[in-house]
Design a protein around this nucleic acid. Structure first.
Length: 479
RNA sequence: GGAUGAUUAGCUCAGUGGUAGAGCGUGCCCCUGUUAAGGGCAGGGUCGAAAGUUCGAAUCUUUCAUCAUCCGCCA
């Protein structure tokens, strides 16, 4: 019976009246042969257990190594030391699982680097940094559902295995049960997918949007929140081959409604974490500040993590059109001093350096860019009356880049099919998608928010591989 | 996919052609109300791999591998 244990977080908040308590957790430190710091993941703080000298077997004390698991019974008393209010005076100490310090690869006192911790991702949750990151990640995921539930959105589970690659969002992972060394062939030598499990070629999903649109055409407002897969050979601190995405899709929404929802959503997530995970955020803020001390002055952030989050909460996102964005770039000192590596002119797909200039130098806050040229955006985005642009919107965040991509969708069947043909999208295969435009079509809109990018922004971590438990990136799927 | 850089002890790193180093961790001893506890002693590396240049290579050259950063693709 283990349920009598008190979590460390609750112990630390308790009044020390000498009550009997049971603590279980992992040893974080053992000082002076008397003071055991125990952590159970409920908080970054440890409970100090005092094993009075001479009262415990040397053989037991020797086994109190870092990350050994223990069960301690004792009394909760006010601490005589300065570092903590309460401590547990141990009456019994039981080792649940030993941890051989000569072999254990995670010695916290060594200040292991984030890169090294990625190599031992199965153990890195036992550090303060990853403890905080993943408690915050949990809180953000919970807040996603809370936000949409409060608004009456329906949570749709869109399929992971799909046959369509219509969005063209990227290279796809193939799903098949055909034998790799000897697949069935057609007469022309191509692989015969009619003999495959689904009787056709299938892939892992790159987006739940198209299916989401189908559901929105009945429930009015839905959202998806699930894993997404892109087989791009992307080697950056912002891309994963497997990542989680939130995709709301709303009938009776135009582009402005869409932007309003996205901004409210992001602020809701930040507020939720500020109110519920302050301790973890404070730790992460301190971690970030220490990391930035190593950087040259001009590369450090102007604001601390907490300051940055408060700033985002208290200010409206800047909203500009693509055309205005290009004008700002063309009139910028950076452009005049030829600081940009890539050309700036109307019609370009803005490069990272351009987006960063707008967000980090010019506006210094999140920016929503709208009405992009149609030629650089997806087929389903609603065509504006100017014939040149579509009702798209991207939200760019400082340090992260694109965190949201969305649009008002093209609800007019003729405009949509025309655009699909121009972009060589197989219209016949998409009959089910086009049916929504045939039968009771309505103006609607939606967006995708990259969950890990949101976690990056909130935690101040700089590499996306450090905000997902077991990152999937090119040449990496060890755990 | 492209560019740049890195790879030396368990970890973090120093070592630019002449016998392989530090801090931390680890082990043993001492101390005992500590807070990254303190003091002492000890063990620990064919310098990412292969080939080459050289009397001699961690150090120079080539190829490969892995990692990081930036770019492209996007969320």
């Amino acid at each position: 019976m283990f349920n009598k244990r008190v979590k460390v977080k609750d112990l630390l908040a308790s009044e020390p009246t000498g009550q009997e308590v049971i603590v279980m957790g992992w040893v974080r430190g053992f000082r002076n042969n008397q003071f055991i710091a125990i952590n159970d993941g409920s908080t970054n703080n440890n409970i100090q257990v005092v094993a009075e000298l001479g009262t415990f077997d040397e053989a037991i004390l020797k086994r109190l190594t870092q990350s050994a698991s223990v069960k301690v019974t004792g009394t909760l008393i006010a601490s005589q030391g300065k570092g903590q209010k309460v401590e547990v005076k141990a009456t019994t100490i039981e080792i649940l699982g030993d941890c051989d310090p000569e072999k254990y690869p995670l010695q916290l006192r060594n200040r292991p680097s984030l890169e090294y911790l990625r190599e031992i991702a199965h153990l890195r949750f036992r550090t303060q940094t990853f403890g905080s990151v993943f408690r915050v990640r949990h809180a953000l995921a919970f807040a996603v559902h809370k936000f949409y539930n409060e608004k009456g959105f329906v949570y749709m589970h869109t399929p992971i295995v799909t046959a369509s690659d219509a969005e063209g969002a990227g290279e796809m992972f193939r799903v098949t049960t055909l034998p790799m060394d000897n697949p069935p062939r057609n007469e022309d030598g191509s692989i015969n997918f009619k003999e495959d499990f689904f009787g056709r070629s299938t892939n892992l999903t790159v987006s739940g949007q198209l299916e989401g649109e189908l559901a929105a055409m009945a429930f009015s407002e839905i959202y998806t929140f699930g894993p997404t897969f892109r087989a791009e050979n992307s080697n950056t601190a912002r891309h994963l081959a497997e990542f989680w995405m939130i995709e709301p899709e709303m009938a009776f929404y135009d582009l402005e409604d869409n932007m309003n929802l996205a901004e409210e959503f992001i602020k809701y997530l930040i507020r939720h974490v500020m109110e519920n995970n302050r301790e973890d955020l404070d730790f992460l803020a301190q971690r970030l500040a220490e990391e930035e001390k190593q950087l040259p002055q001009d590369k450090r952030s102007e604001m601390g993590l907490i300051e940055k989050l408060e700033f985002v909460l208290n200010n409206n996102f800047e909203r500009i059109t693509y055309t205005e964005a290009i004008d700002i770039l063309l009139n910028s000192p950076a452009y005049k001093k030829k600081k940009f590596q890539y050309e700036v002119k109307w019609g370009i797909d803005m490069q990272s350096e351009h987006e960063r200039y707008l967000v980090e130098k010019h506006f210094k806050k999140p920016v929503i860019v709208t009405n992009y040229p149609k030629d650089i955006k997806a087929f389903y985005m609603r065509q504006n009356d100017d014939g040149k642009t579509v009702a798209a919107m991207d939200i760019l965040a400082p340090g992260i880049g694109e965190i949201v991509g969305g649009s008002q969708r093209e609800e007019r069947l003729d405009k949509l099919t025309q655009r699909m043909e121009e972009m060589h999208i197989p219209v016949e295969e998409m009959w089910w998608f086009l049916d929504t435009r045939r039968y009771g079509t309505v103006p609607h809109a939606g967006f995708g928010l990259g969950f890990e990018r949101m976690v990056l922004f909130v935690t101040g971590m700089t590499n996306i591989r450090d905000v997902i438990a077991f990152p999937r990136t090119p040449k990496n799927a060890e755990f």
